[in-house]
Amino acid sequence: MASKSIRIRAKAEGASTEVKALISHEMETGLRVDKKTGEKVPAHFIKEVVCEHNGKTILTAEWSVAISKNPYLSFKFTGGKAGDDVKISWVDNKDDRDSETAKIS
């Protein structure tokens, strides 16, 4: 599996922690036509992204093909502090998956 598909930056400011994540993924819509073959490129997109803070799920994102290629996701939560783990995992419609853990700074 393609590792390092996820880049995470998590920063605590007071009680609030902002997490920014960038995922490398084609996010193919299934509507695009391959100019060489004239056939539609099958859909290939991330369906679900799970974000955890110290093992507790804080955000579950369900996505469609309408999320842009190489998706960017940012969210905030309270209760995080420097050194805590933030884990992000994704699974796509072909059941490929990846996950990455970062420390809050």
Binding site: S16, T29, L31, H53, K56, T57, I58, L59, T60, A61, E62, W63, S64, V65, A66, I67, S68, P71, Y72, L73, S74, F75, K76, F77, T78, G79
Partner: peptide, 29 residues
């Protein structure tokens, strides 16, 4: 939701009680 997309629902985010009301991403229109 992107109203005029072929399938309007773009994303749904389930949040925990500690998650703040803030989400930022990029969508196709």
């Amino acid at each position: 939701i992107v109203e005029k997309n072929p399938r309007p629902l773009a994303a749904s985010f389930d949040m925990s009680p500690t998650t703040e009301g803030y989400v930022s991403t990029r969508v196709k229109m």
